[in-house]
Nucleic acid binder design. Structure first.
Length: 698
DNA sequence: CCCACTGCTTTTTTT
DNA sequence: AAGCAGTGGG
């Protein structure tokens, strides 16, 4: 007897969803209903009488976590027999977008690995060696700290690139390598240097009471590993563990799952080796490939039916991924229609490419995509016509395609610029993912005041704001303050410094007595940021707008206790990714219904009716970073990346490449990507005029 | 300490 | 092409 909430699952999905005890590996191809299956499994567990708060699900992005949380809520609401959770509360909750545990609701704990780390660390901060108000360093913060460490060793940061060194350290930490082991075993010259930098870097962080992204996982794992009592507590707390995108886990995340799963081994992982696109960040395919060895008696379920794409799209994707050697054999199939062929456009240069994309999008929005050819694109000066937003709703109601069903993908962020300009020119509503709201200077500055108020040890924050807005406190002075030589400074300077620290005190006071949104407004005024920006240029005014946006966003935290709200806001800000930008910074300008521009990496997990994959040129995609010879494995990763891109599309794919592209201000000639010729000819269809002519004309 | 100028790097992907 | 860090003059 299949219960209501399990209807709509195919047999493999059903089998996975109803499996309860013991290890479970779900190998799910693209578009095979991975999230659906995992959510239903969770709902089923609850239905079986497992307390919701005994269930944990870890994801990689906030977005994925949010999505899963909402799906679970939705499914639960459907059989609203959940005794201890009251319906109204949940609905309110959903609207306010907060995690269950914080407010005492009983819901599964769905979070990113990093938030999970923060959660565990905060509950045991003393043992970790930080205070409750520790600062989370973002990538840039970490890099500058590494840079300082390099300088401290009297080494030239130009010779030893901080970014590179940070990368090495990060990689090692992700492998759970202990610094002392690294220092001992590393014989290379660079390795020795890295070990020294690493050492100083760690010391700086602990002095500043801060943790980097790697620490958030690492410290939590150490805690679990080295302390049996604590381990038991969490194993008891979460008896059913789910890991999303298991193919992307690194060693530390792998250990975390393992330690949490404990002896019960009620662990369910979902993943797809073909979609491993983060190995450069330490993601280790072995984790998923060896799962059954790690957990004897693993139940393995393979989801091979794709519900997303047309046959043509899927065939192209299958053909592409087949060329990879290092992968488990599997073949996705679909019962969907054959669909249209894949369009291929050869552009003269990146501008031409962008124009092509824009014109096509206009056609799609007008419901005229089925027209076989666009004809000449050279006369584009008078484009099809400027849509005001109403145009897309007018003539063909039946074919109405919301702009948000269209995505433009590219390999590297810099490519977005030309495309963005084209969207602007043709008046197409668009949204670029990748500009991280919380990484904007003005936002970081504002938040730095709050962080510094809560954690006065945070030198990086203080450095950032002590002279912004200008207070006449310069570099040398700052150095003296940090060296503890404050009282050797001229009295006038000392007064300035005291005023600054008093300001921080005031902020702290405000934090503890007011709502979050109030605190933000207060901060902007009191610190002088507002005055500084309101008298300035257009750019400054935009910055001010962004800060207002921050204040609006802060409203969401107002119902938390004074102090706790700010803390949560700061945590979310540190852990937010560009994807979450959509949900957090959602500016009212109907951005939600807009064409999405993003990197292929950012598109993972998403789907769109129409997908444009641009810049398919040798060296760009597949990417061949500064001509270094790529190993076979790197090349396979690029291929997987292309596979991810292809499988985002539901109905129609457009591929394009440009013969010329301007990079670093110089115009380069490119050959088409090998990926194009890897797609069977009969699935492709040329767009635009005869490419031969164009190529000769150049 | 601040500002302006210069010249040098940047653009792979991210929690 | 542009943005940034580092330098030097005020």
């Amino acid at each position: 007897m299949v219960e209501d909430h399990l209807k709509g699952l195919n047999s493999a999905q059903l089998e996975a969803a109803t499996h309860t005890e013991g290890p479970l590996l779900i190998v799910a191809g693209a578009g095979a209903g991975k999230t659906k299956t995992i959510t239903h499994r969770i709902v089923n567990l609850i239905k079986q009488g497992i307390a919701p708060d005994k269930i944990l699900a870890a994801t990689f992005t906030n977005k994925a976590a949010k999505e899963m949380r909402e799906k679970i809520r939705f499914a639960i609401a459907q059989f609203k027999s959940l005794g201890s959770c009251d319906g109204d509360g949940q609905r309110k909750f959903l609207a306010e977008n907060f995690r269950a545990f914080e407010m005492g609701y009983c819901e599964p704990f769905v979070s990113t690995f990093h938030s999970l780390g923060v959660y565990i660390i905060k509950e045991n901060s003393r043992l970790v060696g930080v205070t409750k108000h520790f600062t989370i360093l973002d990538e840039n913060d970490s890099i500058s700290l590494v840079k300082e460490s390099i300088k401290e060793l009297n080494l030239d940061p130009k010779q030893y690139e901080p970014k590179k060194i940070k990368g090495i350290i990060s990689r090692e930490k992700g492998k759970f390598t202990h610094l002392s082991d690294y220092a001992e075993n590393e014989v290379s010259y660079l390795g020795k240097i890295v070990a020294q930098v690493w050492d100083i870097y760690e010391k700086k962080k602990s002095k500043e009471n801060s943790l980097d992204f790697d620490d958030l996982l690492l410290k939590a794992v150490k805690l679990l590993k080295e302390n049996e009592n604590i381990r038991k507590i969490y194993q008891e707390r979460w008896q059913y563990i789910h890991i999303d995108e298991y193919q992307d886990t690194n060693e530390v995340q792998y250990l975390m799952s393992k330690l949490l799963a404990g002896d019960k081994k009620n662990i369910c992982v979902v993943g797809d080796a073909d979609q491993n696109i983060y190995s450069w960040r330490g993601a280790n395919l072995k984790n998923i490939l060896n799962f059954e060895k790690d957990y004897p008696n693993t139940k393995i379920i393979i989801l091979e039916e794709n519900y997303r794409s047309t046959k043509n799209i899927l065939e192209a994707a299958n053909e592409i991924i087949k060329k990879n050697v290092y992968r488990p054999d599997k073949n996705l199939f679909t019962k969907n229609k054959t669909g249209e062929k894949i369009s291929l456009y050869e552009a003269l240069d990146e501008n031409d490419e962008a124009d092509f994309v824009a014109v096509k999008i206009l056609e799609i929005l007008d419901g005229e995509t089925n027209v076989a050819s666009v004809g000449s694109l050279s006369g584009l000066a008078s484009p099809a016509l400027p849509l005001d937003s109403s145009a897309c709703e007018t003539p063909h109601q039946s074919k109405f395609i919301p702009p948000s069903e269209i995505a433009i993908l590219y390999r590297a962020n810099f490519q977005s610029r030309v495309l963005e300009e084209a969207m602007l020119r043709y008046n197409i509503p668009y949204q670029v993912l990748g500009t991280k709201f919380f990484e904007r200077k003005e936002i970081k500055d504002t938040l730095a005041y709050l962080r510094a108020a809560l954690n006065p040890e945070s030198l990086s924050d203080i450095k950032r704001i002590i002279n912004f807005p200008g207070r006449g406190i310069g570099k040398t002075t700052i150095a003296k303050i940090f060296a503890g030589e404050r009282n050797t400074l001229p009295i006038k300077m000392q007064i300035k410094i005291n005023n600054f620290y008093e300001l921080l005190e005031e902020l702290k006071e405000k934090i503890n007595t007011s709502k979050v949104s109030e605190v933000i407004k207060f901060t902007v005024k009191k610190t002088g940021i507002e005055t500084e920006l309101s008298s300035g240029t257009e750019e400054d005014l935009e910055k001010l707008e962004n800060i207002k946006e921050l204040a609006t966003l802060a409203l969401k935290y107002d119902n938390l206790e004074n102090g706790a709200g700010i803390e949560k806001l700061l945590e979310d800000a540190s852990l937010a990714s560009d994807q979450d930008g959509i949900m957090l910074a959602e500016n009212k300008k109907q951005t939600t219904n807009a064409v999405r521009l993003m990197t292929v990496h950012a598109s993972k997990g998403l789907e769109f009716k129409y997908v444009f994959i641009t810049g398919l040129e040798d060296g760009l995609f597949p990417n061949n970073h500064n001509g270094e010879t790529k190993s076979g494995e790197d090349r396979e990763e690029e291929r997987r990346l292309f596979y991810v891109a292809l499988t985002r599309a539901k109905e129609k794919l457009f591929l394009s490449f440009a013969n010329f592209r301007t990079i670093f201000g110089s115009r380069q000639i490119n050959t088409p990507s090998e990926f194009i010729s890897d797609i069977p000819r009969d699935l492709l269809e040329k767009e635009g005029e005869d490419p031969g002519i164009k190529t000769i004309y150049i």
